[in-house]
Design a protein around this nucleic acid. Structure first.
Lengths: 343, 343
DNA sequence: GCGTTCAGAGTGAGCGCTAACAACATGCCC
DNA sequence: GGGCATGTTGTTAGCGCTCACTCTGAACGC
C-alpha cells in the first residue's frame, strides 16, 4: 500500500472528508452511511464502507456530541466500597450498557454525603452525559438527589422507594419477611435481628420486613442489634447474642454479618444450626461454604442492573420524568443454617 | 414528540459568548480565564467569573475535545467479575482518577479473550480517551494486548511481568514465598498448594513462589491442586486433601479457596490449625472471621491503583512508551490458621 | 406534453471551543 | 520623541461533525 497515505505517523486521523474524497462522494453521504440513513444507494454505501475500512476511519465522537448536543455516555455515581451488592450491580450494569452501545463513566464518592454526591452529579453534567444512575442507598444520598435539577434523566438504585422519581431496587422488606418467616416456620418463638447501618434504606427495609413477620405471627419483637455491613461488626453483635440463652434464631442483614455471627457463636460453643439458627442476605458466592452453609436471601443483581438500564434508556429517549419504580423480589435460598429449636 | 420538559428552560445552555457578552469582553478572554492563562487583568478575571456564576455557565467538553484533540477521559478494560482483588483495585483507581480531574470510563468484557479485549480497547479509542488501563490477568488478555497499536498510553495491571510495556502488579511470587516459608517455619515438612486458574498470571506467580520456597528448603514439592478462584472449587480441592493424612499444611491461592478448604476440613473432622495449617491470599475483610481466622497475604490494592494512575498520567503527559514496571510487595498477615504440625 | 413526486445525492452553516495572530495601550530605554 | 518590549484584549479560522436546505434526474399521472 504505497499510496497517498505514505507520509509517516504525524498526520492527523482521517476525517469524514477524507473518506468522502476516497469514495468519491460528499461528506454528507458518508455521514448518512454512518448513521444508517435511508436514501443511499446500495452501491454508494458499499463504496463508502470500503473507504472507511481502507483509511481506518473512526468517527469523532466529540464532534458529533458537539453538534447534536447528545452523547452516548451514561454517568454512574457510586460509593467507594467493595460491598458485594453494589459491586455486582455495577458490574452487571456496565456490561448491559456496553451491549447497548453506551459508555459508562463511573464517579466514586468517598462518602455518601450531600456535597460529594452533588459534586459527582455536577461532574457528569459537565460531561454532558445522556443520563445518570445514582446508587443512593442512604438517606443522605437521597437528600442530595432532591436538590438535583430534574432536567436530566436520572435513575436511582437502592434509594428510598418513598421518594418520587425513577427508582429500581430490591424488595428488602419481602426478602426479610421471607427470611424471618422461614425461621418462625422452623419452630422458633421469635427471631433476633442484626441490622445494617440504619441510615441505609436496605437496612431499614430489612428491619421492617423482619418486624412485620414477627408481628403477623404474634411473636415478640426483640431489640435490633445494630451493626454496619462488615463481618467484624457481625462478630461483635454475635458476641452479645451468643451470651443470651434464649436467642435461638437470628436474621442477619447480610451474609458477612452472618459470618461474623457464626464465628462468635462457634467461639462460645453454640452450634449453628442446632442451638442457633441463622439466615443471611445477599447470597455471596462464599456463603455456601461457611462453616455452616448459610441459608440466605438472594437478590437478582443482574435483573436490577438491566431494569435500571432499560428504565434510564426509556427516559433518555422519551424525555419522561414522572415517577417510575421497579421493585424486584428476592428469593430465599435454603441451606443448612436453619433447624428447629433444640428444646 | 412533545417537548414538555419539566423546567421552562427551553433556551439552550449558555455558551462562552453569552458569558463574554455579559462580562463585556470577548469570548477568548473567557476562555483564558477558564484555562487559567496569565495575562488577564485581575479585574477582568473577576468580571468574567461573576458572569459565569450568574449564568450557571459550564464549558462544553465536547467542543474543547474537538478542538484540542484531547480528552480528560481514561478508559478501563476489566473483566466481568466480582473478585475481590480486581474490584478493590478498580474502585481505588476510579477514586484516584477522579481526584486528578479525570473521568473514568469502564468497559467490562464477559470473557478475557482476544476479540473481546480488542473490541473494548477499540471502543475506548473511538472515544478518544487520553489513556487506557487494562486489567489483564490472563495469558489470553495479554496476547490480545500485543496486537494493540502502541500509539496510545496504555498501562496493564496484573499482567505478565515478562511482557514489555507499562505494567503495575503485585509481587505474587514474593507473597506466595512468604506464605509458604511461614508454614515451613512453623515446622511443616512440606506445604500443599491449591492454585487459582493456571492461565492467570497471579496464579502462576503464586505457584512459582510456593515452589521456590519449598525448593530452597529442600522440601518435597507436592502436586498442585488446581482450582478456580471460588470457594466452591476450594471446597472440592479440600475434599481431596482432607483424605490425605500426610497433608498438614496448605497454601491456598486466595482467601475464598481457603474458605472452601476450611469447610472441607471441618466436614472431615480435621481441625484447622491443629491438624492442618492454612494460609490464604488477598486478605478479604471477612477472612479474620472465618471459623478459624485466616493467616493470609495482603496486597495493597490502593497502592496498585495509585501507581497505575501515576504511571498512566506520566505517559499521557510525556508520551513515553518505553517499558516501565512497578511491582508491589504484599505483606503477610498472621492470624490463627497456622500452627506447628500435630506429631 | 407538463407538472409532480421522490430517491439520491450535494452545499453551506454552525455547534462551542482553542490556537494563532493582530491590535492596542503602556512603560521604558536611549 | 522614536523604537521596542510587555501586558492585555480582540479577531479570525478552523476542529469534524449533523442539520436544514438545495439540486438533479427519473418515474409517474393526467
Amino acid at each position: 500500500m504505497e499510496d497517498t497515505s505514505a507520509t509517516v505517523g504525524a498526520t492527523r486521523d482521517p476525517a469524514m472528508t477524507d473518506v468522502a474524497r476516497l469514495a468519491g462522494v460528499s461528506h454528507q453521504t458518508v455521514s448518512r452511511v454512518l448513521n444508517g440513513h435511508p436514501n443511499v444507494r446500495e452501491q454508494t454505501r458499499l463504496r463508502v464502507r470500503a473507504a472507511i475500512e481502507e483509511l481506518g476511519y473512526r468517527p469523532n465522537r466529540a464532534a458529533r456530541a458537539l453538534v447534536t448536543g447528545r452523547s452516548q455516555l451514561i454517568g454512574v455515581v457510586a460509593q467507594n466500597s467493595t460491598l458485594y451488592g453494589p459491586t455486582s450491580l455495577l458490574a452487571a450494569f456496565e456490561l448491559a450498557a456496553a451491549a447497548q452501545g453506551f459508555t459508562v463513566s463511573v464517579r466514586r464518592v468517598r462518602v455518601l454525603d450531600r456535597s460529594s454526591i452533588a459534586a459527582a452529579v455536577e461532574h457528569h453534567r459537565d460531561q454532558r452525559v445522556a443520563g445518570i444512575v445514582v446508587i443512593a442507598p442512604t438517606a443522605s444520598a437521597d437528600e442530595a438527589l432532591a436538590e438535583v435539577p430534574a432536567d436530566l434523566p436520572l435513575v436511582t438504585v437502592d434509594g428510598d422507594p418513598k421518594r418520587g422519581g425513577a427508582l429500581v431496587t430490591v424488595d428488602q422488606e419481602a426478602g426479610a419477611f421471607a427470611a424471618t418467616r422461614h425461621l418462625l416456620d422452623a419452630g422458633h418463638d421469635t427471631v433476633w435481628h442484626v441490622s445494617g447501618p440504619v441510615d441505609w434504606f436496605d437496612a431499614a427495609g430489612r428491619i421492617r420486613g423482619w418486624q412485620k413477620a414477627l408481628q403477623e405471627a404474634d411473636a415478640e419483637v426483640p431489640p435490633v442489634s445494630p451493626a454496619d455491613w462488615s463481618a467484624a461488626s457481625g462478630y461483635r453483635a454475635g458476641q452479645m447474642l451468643s451470651r443470651m440463652p434464649d436467642v435461638t434464631a437470628i436474621f442477619a442483614a447480610n451474609d458477612h454479618l452472618a459470618l461474623g455471627i457464626l464465628r462468635a457463636m462457634t467461639e462460645r460453643g453454640r452450634s449453628v444450626p442446632h442451638e442457633v439458627s441463622l439466615v443471611g442476605f445477599d447470597d455471596v458466592p462464599e456463603s455456601a461454604y461457611f462453616s455452616t452453609p448459610l441459608t440466605t436471601v438472594r437478590p437478582d443483581f443482574d435483573a436490577v442492573a438491566t431494569e435500571t438500564l432499560s428504565l434510564l434508556l426509556s427516559r433518555i429517549s422519551t424525555g419522561d420524568t414522572d415517577p417510575a419504580q421497579r421493585i424486584l423480589t428476592p428469593t430465599l435460598i435454603q441451606r443448612q443454617s436453619v433447624a428447629p429449636p433444640a428444646n
